[in-house]
Design a protein around this nucleic acid. Structure first.
Lengths: 129, 129
DNA sequence: CGCTTATTTGAAGGTGTCTACAACTATCGG
DNA sequence: CCGATAGTTGTAGACACCTTCAAATAAGCG
């Protein structure tokens, strides 16, 4: 038996009392179940979303688009953040990949809009502070 | 006038029509207001939260703690993820800093529990997929 | 006390990320 | 077509991050 499993065993005996072997097995099963609940695809998708938002530039862009409650042209967005055009473009592209904004071509202008997922996330952040 | 401001001016004239000078000024004011809505402290706090969750190991830890709906001992958590004890400890510490989990000492064991902010975020992610 | 065990801390190294620059594509107006 | 403008893409280097190992701290037990 591995060392970490030993430690877990000791912990559970400590917590439950040594006599309750049924409870101990039940607890081990619970922990197994817990692990089983993790879906790899959901994880990687959520992590992509969160790490996209977890960057100051991209967070600002999303905030602005959500507050605007409308699509904005790149040329409207760029003056509002303190990085190069190129950085804005890279950032928006990553946000599109993450499903946090959508892109629309309009002649020579490109317009971006926050998705409902983006505004839902910001709403929760605002509401749980 | 800067280049990006020139571009913005051209865009707005393009969109609104050149005659509507009042509307143009109003739009510029709107964009200014938008920028003013960004609060630096909120931004850095949210970005810290999001970047903490935007890492696979930490995301898994939070998921597990939220699903458990209870505090878990480090020794229960470690076998559920595929990194060293040390990595788990570092990860949990960052999550505490970000306000996503809380820590409690119980004798020689340390127990962690997800905060309501953490479960709110996961709920929104689940609900907006 | 001294030993064992649980967890944390510090540091290092390998990897990934972010932004700016430059070059590119695409669209518009003449 | 051609020049100008809007925006994107590739890339490089500076920097940050993540994990591991080793050592440190802390608590319980004899």
């Amino acid at each position: 038996m591995s060392e970490t499993a030993d430690r877990l065993q000791r912990y559970l005996e400590d917590e439950l009392g040594e006599c309750q072997n049924e409870d101990l097995q039940a607890r081990l099963d619970d922990l197994d179940t817990l692990e089983g609940l993790l879906d790899e695809e959901i994880i990687s998708n959520d992590v992509q979303t969160l790490s996209a938002l977890g960057n100051e530039t991209r967070y600002r862009l999303v905030r602005l688009l959500v507050e605007a409650d409308n699509e904005l042209c790149v040329c409207e967005i760029t003056p509002l953040v303190d990085v190069s055009d190129s950085a804005v473009s890279h950032a928006l592209s990553k946000l599109v990949d993450a499903g946090l904004v959508t892109k629309r071509k309009d002649g020579r202008w490109r317009k971006y809009r926050a998705t409902s997922r983006a505004s839902a996330l910001l709403t929760v952040l605002d509401g749980s502070r």
